[in-house]
Design a protein around this nucleic acid. Structure first.
Length: 508
RNA sequence: GCUCCAUUCGUCUAACGGUUAGGACAGCAGAUUCUCAUUCUGCAAAUACCAGUUCGAUUCUGGUAUGGAGUACCA
């Protein structure tokens, strides 16, 4: 059995979006589970579409997600370089090899000529395909005399090398997710493999050559590549590499939450959720949201993504990366596209929030407080975080859930006053104040025990007392457990607020 | 247009010939609670359609419809 080696091969044409992250994740899980290698290769063979910063973004995003490569641009490795632009001298040789073996040929048509041809064909109501029907009559090394071909190359005419797609042949392919797929080569065209203009291969050639050289055992990629699979099969055959040809698995696409089509950058902006793992500022200054900046935990993001197109067959929904590695399997990947659901993404984050370590939360909470001019010790921030995390989805919710701890009320919500600051309630709160004044241990367990005993002893109504108490301390109908809040506030501040409320709230 | 792929509650999905078609998110109702949340319980909600194979089809086959992808000297 061959060593499992998989690769994630993005193009640095922009930020990696969540569909790309999922592809990387599945590759990573597959490799880890098999004890194999996960490789990151940068496919930058399109000199026109290079976007500055995109490559760094891809690495940073995967790192944030906890997806670590064994080999790659940053990691190095025995099969480098891992950036195709640095491997350019490799590809021509292979393209030429295909010409020599009769599997490819030179074509001298200019892009303009091809456009014209395409246009003319469409005028006649046909679709233009560069294939067995036309290659004998266009400016190709198949139609031109050998010396003419040589002359054109020598004098520097631009050329491309095209794959010679066989006519009317059934190609039988196998996909790990979809099963057997058959296609007739007559429906395919002669793809460009190499272009002299920038001395770079196109995706198809570079991809096959590198996967071969890097000893890739499984290609796990997006469904958009399925139509290219026959070409890739035929390339492996033309090179004589069928015995080491990788197995293929084409993943279903991620679709828009609403409407039609696959998930795009625009959807996020429009529907208010990130489509990118990290915030991205495009070269022209446009900023796109990122999961990280929007407050998602990488674990929650990964968990959500893992289940978008894959399921374990059990009812487990919360998975650590280790659990995913242990349980992932390609044959439980679904075949159809998955519509992304932002609500579920938030739900996942809330699940992780509820069990998040208080100290870790305090680290994120303290800067938030400082933005509001509040500085508290880490220990206190952690304690508050522990009390409020159960009602939060994001750390950014923490302010709304706790601001009243730092700002004593000066006015009181009239509706609550009308409801609870009436009858004997103010007197009862005054009594409660005295009870609290006599307590030294302000831990929530202690104040709760004592106050509840007092309330019961006097036969007061719990709801009446507690709501009036809340009004006095918070000023409105907000907050978490009264006793937890008092614990955070401390005895002095609690009494101060009670005294202020007793003196300033007019009886309803 | 052509080629390929797909199609179970609104959404993500389970059921790999025999189930009252299960779970989760969202929705609704109720319970718990010192507010609001959380949590818990419950309700509602689906096999695209038409044939065929079979004792029996969500499951297999064919067609139709719908959706998706591809159709570049982009990946």
């Amino acid at each position: 059995m061959r060593r499992v080696r998989v690769r994630f091969a993005p193009s640095p044409t922009g930020p990696l979006h969540m569909g790309g992250v999922r592809t990387a994740l599945y590759n990573y899980l597959f490799a880890r589970q098999a004890g194999g290698d996960f490789i990151i290769r940068i496919e930058d063979t399109d000199s026109n579409r290079y976007v500055p910063g995109a490559e760094e973004y891809i690495f940073d995003a995967l790192e944030w997600c906890g997806i670590k490569a064994d080999e790659g641009v940053r990691e190095g490795g025995p099969h480098g370089p891992y950036r195709q632009s640095e491997r350019r001298e490799i590809y021509l040789e292979y393209a030429l090899r295909l010409v020599e073996s009769g599997n490819a040929y030179y074509a001298f048509d200019t892009p303009e000529e091809l456009d014209r041809l395409r246009h003319e064909t469409e005028q006649r109501g046909d679709t233009f395909a560069y294939n067995y029907k036309v290659r004998g009559s266009l400016a190709t090394s198949l139609a031109l005399p050998a010396d003419e071909v040589e002359k054109r190359i020598e004098r520097g005419d631009q050329w491309v090398i095209r794959f010679m797609m066989p006519e009317n042949e059934e190609v039988h392919m196998h996909d790990l997710i979809r099963g057997d797929v058959t296609i007739n080569t007559s429906t395919l065209d002669d793809k460009v493999l190499y272009k002299s203009a920038d001395q770079l291969p196109t995706y198809h050639l570079a991809n096959i050559v590198d996967d071969h050289l890097m000893e890739i055992s499984h290609v796990i990629r997006g469904e958009e590549w399925l139509p290219s699979l026959p070409l890739h099969y035929l390339l492996y055959r033309a090179f004589g590499w069928t015995d080491t040809q990788p197995e293929f698995a084409h993943l279903p696409l991620l679709l828009k939450p609403t409407g039609q089509g696959k998930l795009s950058k625009r959807d996020g902006d429009k529907l208010g959720f990130p489509v990118f793992p990290l915030q991205w500022t495009s070269p022209d200054g446009e900023v796109s949201h990122g999961y990280r900046e929007d407050g998602y935990f990488p674990e929650a993001f990964i968990n959500m993504l893992a289940l978008l197109g894959w399921n374990p067959g059990t009812e487990q929904e919360i998975f650590s990366m280790e659990e995913l590695i242990a349980q992932f399997s390609l044959d439980r990947v679904s075949k159809s596209g998955a519509r992304f659901n932002p609500d579920k993404a938030r739900w996942f984050n809330a699940q992780y929030m509820h069990v998040r370590d208080n100290d870790a939360l305090a680290d994120a909470y303290m800067p938030l407080l400082r933005e509001h001019g509040i500085d508290i010790p880490h220990e206190k921030a952690a304690r508050i975080a522990g009390y409020i995390k159960g009602r939060a989805t994001f750390v950014s919710d923490f302010w709304e859930l706790s601001y009243f701890l730092f700002k004593a009320p000066v006015t009181f919500d009239q509706k609550v006053v009308d409801k609870y600051w009436k009858n004997d309630n103010p007197e009862h709160i005054a009594g409660l104040r005295d009870v609290l004044a006599g307590i030294d241990d302000f831990s929530n367990a202690n104040t709760e025990t004592i106050c509840h005993a007092w309330i019961e002893e006097h036969g007061y109504k719990m709801g009446q007392i507690m709501n009036a108490f809340r009004l006095a301390i918070v000023g409105e109908s907000k907050g978490f457990s009264m006793y937890e809040m008092c614990e955070v506030l401390g005895k002095e501040e609690t009494l101060r607020r009670l005294d202020y409320a007793l003196a300033n709230i007019p009886r309803a």
